[in-house]
Design a protein around this nucleic acid. Sequence first.
DNA 1: ATATAAACGAGACGGTACGTCCCGTCTTCCC
DNA 2: GGGAAGACGGGACGTACCGTCTCGTTTATAT
Lengths: 204, 204, 204, 204
Amino acid sequence: MQSRTRAPRATGRPRSAAADAAILAATREALVELGWSKLTLGDVATRAGVAKTTLYRRWAGKNELVVDAVAELFDELRLPDRGSLAADIEGVVLQFAAILARPEAACGLMAVVAESTRDDALRARIRTSVVEPQKRLVLQGRERAQQRGELPPESDPAEAARTVDLIFDVVAGAVVHRTLVSAEAADEEWVRGFTRILLVGLTS
Amino acid sequence: MQSRTRAPRATGRPRSAAADAAILAATREALVELGWSKLTLGDVATRAGVAKTTLYRRWAGKNELVVDAVAELFDELRLPDRGSLAADIEGVVLQFAAILARPEAACGLMAVVAESTRDDALRARIRTSVVEPQKRLVLQGRERAQQRGELPPESDPAEAARTVDLIFDVVAGAVVHRTLVSAEAADEEWVRGFTRILLVGLTS
Amino acid sequence: MQSRTRAPRATGRPRSAAADAAILAATREALVELGWSKLTLGDVATRAGVAKTTLYRRWAGKNELVVDAVAELFDELRLPDRGSLAADIEGVVLQFAAILARPEAACGLMAVVAESTRDDALRARIRTSVVEPQKRLVLQGRERAQQRGELPPESDPAEAARTVDLIFDVVAGAVVHRTLVSAEAADEEWVRGFTRILLVGLTS
Amino acid sequence: MQSRTRAPRATGRPRSAAADAAILAATREALVELGWSKLTLGDVATRAGVAKTTLYRRWAGKNELVVDAVAELFDELRLPDRGSLAADIEGVVLQFAAILARPEAACGLMAVVAESTRDDALRARIRTSVVEPQKRLVLQGRERAQQRGELPPESDPAEAARTVDLIFDVVAGAVVHRTLVSAEAADEEWVRGFTRILLVGLTS
DNA sequence: ATATAAACGAGACGGTACGTCCCGTCTTCCC
DNA sequence: GGGAAGACGGGACGTACCGTCTCGTTTATAT
């Protein structure tokens, strides 16, 4: 999740592993209490029981830190096996909605996406750390549906990849918009309606 | 678009109408050049040739100012009459994508949405100023499709309203996600694929 | 004493005159309590009941601030009329020693002199604000002694100027060294001995 | 010069003697280039090719380090034998002025003196390491003048000691003030004038 | 020769102050 | 009374060093 790969240095005091975890946890805590714009790195450092310099030694700024803090939240997504493609989709969409209902996820994610409109490196980091890893869910779902015979095996791999991306944009986009812009809960009823449209569109 | 209602005062120098326009234009210009996080109200005031006090007299802060500045961008959306529901949808989605491709729209909109996750008044303002007015497009599209006989007249008004909201979330969400998160253009090909799924799902 | 001359601006809020005085007083207070090296501008600002920015708007840094704060201390030096040149000198030297015995004068003055060894602009500022104004004491003393007939009128003006500088260096240097390096009080006895040597050397 | 006394340990790696010299030399080099206030111990350690911990193991801080670094500079002072007391004094004063003209001596010495106004231990260290050892010059000079018959043998030892201190304060103070405050070279002409006054005062 | 123990380099650590930037408010003068 | 100008109190920024610490490594002596 954390893309900072550092060759383990041969010499000098090694970095505290505990500090990383404490900082990310403190970041999420601060996001909940203060939101993005009132979150300060000094405050995060204090909450984590860490010096500001330690924080800056590991993350370049607020954006990078929050990406990592938020990314961990989405790692808990799992594709449930509920017996049918529709039910599986509903299950994972509900999980996604549940995560987005958490304030640290919502405000952290939207803030870094907003920032990324002017920062290509940040956008790449978001995709690498947050978005791309979750496409596994779409792939798993399709595979399982194919095994069940609900979907035919794909014939054109390129077309299949495009479809994965399309589905992902539609699902993620719709849930985010419903939750954060329309400010209505993506509850079971809504998810059912949404899934029906999506699935009909895909299987016809 | 601007919710600041001020009773026309009987006495004293009236507020310059030109200043409002200059400030909003300067805000969009600054958004393009600097992005949300580096945009400062002092800079906007300078660009607009206006004192900082004048700006604060009219807007409560950065959020409100940017909402107003961005809202104007979406007012130019029009539902084209291209002969079929599918073509109409494609047309308006392409328009929407074109607006979102402008940096001031993308970064301004996402930033205020991000802020609104912690500020209900701001979210309400966004919905009132930016989102709700555009639902007219969905309504117009459905009406026109019904006149053409492409869609049946709705039987249940409540269900119909829910569908409008669902469509809006799916369309707006998918385009935003495609453009800003996946960072790929919502071009004609993509819009065609997206519209097909949406329409099949809706009409089946 | 304060060399910051600023053309009175036609527009905008004028600078607070009270702030200047409060800052200089706070600086002296902090010098007494903390000394030069532990004196921080943030702390001075707090003591003065002033924002750090206000302080930085008026002084470029710690050095300049302390020069101004210390300079005021030496303005209270007066040449007493005690009836003879020797007594006059003793009187003013004792006054000088008394000021140097104050910790804010000693540590502030020495610190800026130390800094000035690497900063010509600062040295010039010290001379203009602190040192040169006090040469008036030597001039007054000589004039008065000439009126009394204790000293002959000077024949060579250039030589006379050189002598003023020499006397100043000897007096100021000796008192400073006695007080701060040897760390012994420049008391009446010491001043008497010192004045005797100086005066014999000058009048012979 | 270095007051750090450490009991010779029976075992373990002994401290590098070369490191001490390298550190003091690096300190003087850094004083020349950066001056006191911008000199950092980390930088000195780097210049000396030594770890910061090694430096801290031997000196308590910047003050102590610079005292030792500067003290070495004044050890090279020698009382020349130029045939007369006046000439001897002129010679040694010129030497002293030459050392003070070196930036590392001037800025290092003044800085620690400034610090010592708030730190009695530091002042004691300065006197022990830098000042007192040089009083030998005054003693030697008097002794030699007495042998030449230029000065009478002292009658009152206490009075004689007081005179040594007075002379030392006057000489050191005047040269320092001339060089660092008045910022004029203590050249041969000035030294001649100064010595004349001093000597007349002393011998009359 | 080998174990012991201190010195060493490297660099991360908690911490403090820096000087800057911007905030949102205020005070002044001008129209 | 509106508006331009700009000073004000305040808060966070990201950086630079501080002096301490924790590593792994090196280097003398004591066994």
